[in-house]
């Protein structure tokens, strides 16, 4: 087994944490999505994202199950690197849909950063995930497209977009060790290099309801978790915390 450098681990953990929490957020719509077909579709997309997280954690953990659990669920709060976008408790379905669109647009680009990675196994994971992202994007886009055509729905999407867009910029914040990770060939370029392409796509898609100027809060994903993180992690660990010594 190859031991990853500190910078490679940091970079991949930031990516994995985003995938993990995003997957969790999708699964929260099980049983309460606006219609049955969408209920299943979101749960399935969430499962894909959890799968991506697992594959990334496995690369960092060297396929050791106990270490994967440790990375995914048992780190100190300060050791997570997730962006505020995926941590956020969003109030409504339209917010969730906007997050789905914005996140998957960024994620699709992200996999392109590591599809020739020097980290063993990562390029294969990237190619597989990119295939799935094509579909996730199509799903989000089809829904947004249909809803933008209905004035009342478009208004609600506009409110959601204005609220969620600033959070999404956190996806492009630097993480610790990123520059070294790029030098080592873990990734082709840092996350922020893709922000312009992503923003162009967002403007194209949401043209009529795009808020124009907006600013991102200083998320500093290396050091600070948003207020929504702790309750989210507590929910995810709820069963584990009942009896940490239980063997599954």
């Amino acid at each position: 087994m190859t031991v990853l450098s500190e910078s490679a681990s940091e970079y991949l953990l930031a990516f994995a944490d985003d995938e993990h929490l995003m997957g969790q957020r999708y699964t929260e719509w099980i049983g309460v999505a606006p219609f049955l077909e969408e209920d299943l579709a979101l749960a399935s997309i969430g499962q894909d994202e959890l799968g991506h997280a697992l594959m990334l954690y496995a690369i960092v953990a060297g396929d050791d199950d106990a270490t994967i659990d440790q990375l995914a669920l048992l780190r100190d709060v300060d050791d997570y690197r997730s962006s505020w976008l995926v941590e956020a408790d969003l109030p409504n379905w339209e917010h969730a849909l906007i997050r789905h669109w914005l996140y998957d647009a960024a994620e699709e680009l992200r996999w392109g950063l590591v599809d020739e990675s020097t980290v063993p196994g990562l390029a294969d994971v990237a190619k597989r995930a990119a295939q799935e992202e094509l579909y996730h994007r199509r799903h989000a886009d089809a829904l947004v497209n249909a809803l933008l055509g209905v004035p009342k729905s478009a208004e609600r999407l506009e409110v959601a977009l204005t609220e969620v867009l600033p959070l999404a910029l956190g996806l492009f914040e630097a993480v610790d060790g990123e520059a070294e990770a790029v030098t080592e060939g873990v990734a082709k370029a840092p996350f922020h290099s893709q922000r312009a392409v992503w923003e162009t796509r967002v403007v194209q898609r949401f043209a009529r309801i795009h808020p124009g100027q907006y600013t991102a809060p200083d998320q500093d994903r290396r050091r600070r978790r948003s207020p929504d993180f702790a309750p989210l992690m507590a929910r995810m660990r709820e069963v584990y915390d009942l009896d940490p010594l239980a063997v599954w």
């Binding site: 077909e37 579909y135 089809a142």
Partner: peptide, 20 residues
Amino acid sequence: SIEAANDELALVMARENYVR
């Protein structure tokens, strides 16, 4: 069968509901 607002949505929904 499946309910959807248009062909494209029907396709993406059918994929998850029947070919997962």
